[in-house]
């Protein structure tokens, strides 16, 4: 029950970013994806999210709970139009799209889930405010509320704290801890190592490959099948 990577190669038609990524990440893990600019963090997340095809190999998300089989992804530059005529509640409700489809009507349970998501990110008081009037940190929290409503088992975040203040960052970290506590897996690309230390696991991308290790540098014991590095270059533990 985990994210299984099988000899995954990521990149573009004429540009291989990284190859030979393999191993598993257990459900309920909180992983900080770290590495220098250009290391391939965003490319890896896009590939895991299914927004980009792998060059070769495969990645499979095998969720223990049926409703957790979907993958949610928040990119570094969300495509949400800054002048979108939506309230904060409308934006959170957008997370129901995959379940409701073209004509489904949100039920009482769905409304409760939106209420809980807005409450969790601290935006209940602003639920009727237009998203165009939100600050950067508030908008990021609203997007986290939408991720919560999506109810996915694997949540991929690309630099989720890059445009938020300390208070919003603390709130968002609490939300991530809550998700992990619910048995979801969170992988977040983070360039700030102080912030990345809030995550128990680091998945480090470098010229030596993709190496999973504990953020406190203690031996990695919880992983049944630790991720391995680029073929033949390094080992993760």
């Amino acid at each position: 029950m985990s994210l299984i990577l099988n000899d995954l190669a990521i990149g573009y038609p004429n540009h291989l970013v990284m190859a030979g990524i393999g191993g598993t990440i257990s459900t309920g893990s909180a992983v900080a994806l770290i590495g220098q600019n250009g290391a391939g963090k965003s490319t890896l997340l896009r590939t895991l999210a299914g927004d980009q095809s792998p060059v070769s190999g495969s990645c499979v998300w095998d969720a223990p709970v049926k409703r957790h089989r979907s993958i949610a992804w928040l990119s570094q530059s969300p495509s949400l139009r800054p002048d979108a005529p939506l309230t904060v509640r409308d934006l959170a409700a957008m997370g129901l799209w995959a379940r409701l489809g073209l004509f489904g009507k949100p039920c009482r349970h769905d409304q409760d889930r939106i209420d809980q998501a807005l409450d969790m990110v601290g935006l209940s008081d602003l639920e009727n405010q237009q998203v165009s009037t939100l600050s950067g940190g508030q908008l990021q929290r609203a997007l986290f509320a939408r991720l919560s409503v999506q109810d996915c088992g694997l949540i991929l975040l690309d630099e989720p704290f890059s445009a938020v203040d300390t208070a919003s960052q603390t709130k968002l970290l609490e939300v991530i801890q809550h998700w992990v506590g619910e048995g979801r897996t969170v992988i977040a690309a983070i360039h700030d190592l102080d912030c990345a230390r809030q995550f128990p696991l680091w998945w480090e991308l470098s010229k030596f490959g993709a190496i999973l290790r504990r953020s406190d540098d203690k031996p990695l014991s919880s992983m049944s099948q630790p991720l391995r590095a680029v073929s033949g270059v390094a080992q993760s533990s």
């Binding site: 299914g50 927004d51 993958i71 990119s75 139009r81 979108a84 939506l86 957008m94 073209l102 999506q150």
Partner: peptide, 19 residues
Amino acid sequence: RPLLIDTLDPQFLRASGGA
């Protein structure tokens, strides 16, 4: 519904797990 999401947040429509 899909047209609205595609108009306001096309990336979300692609990656949300919907049809």
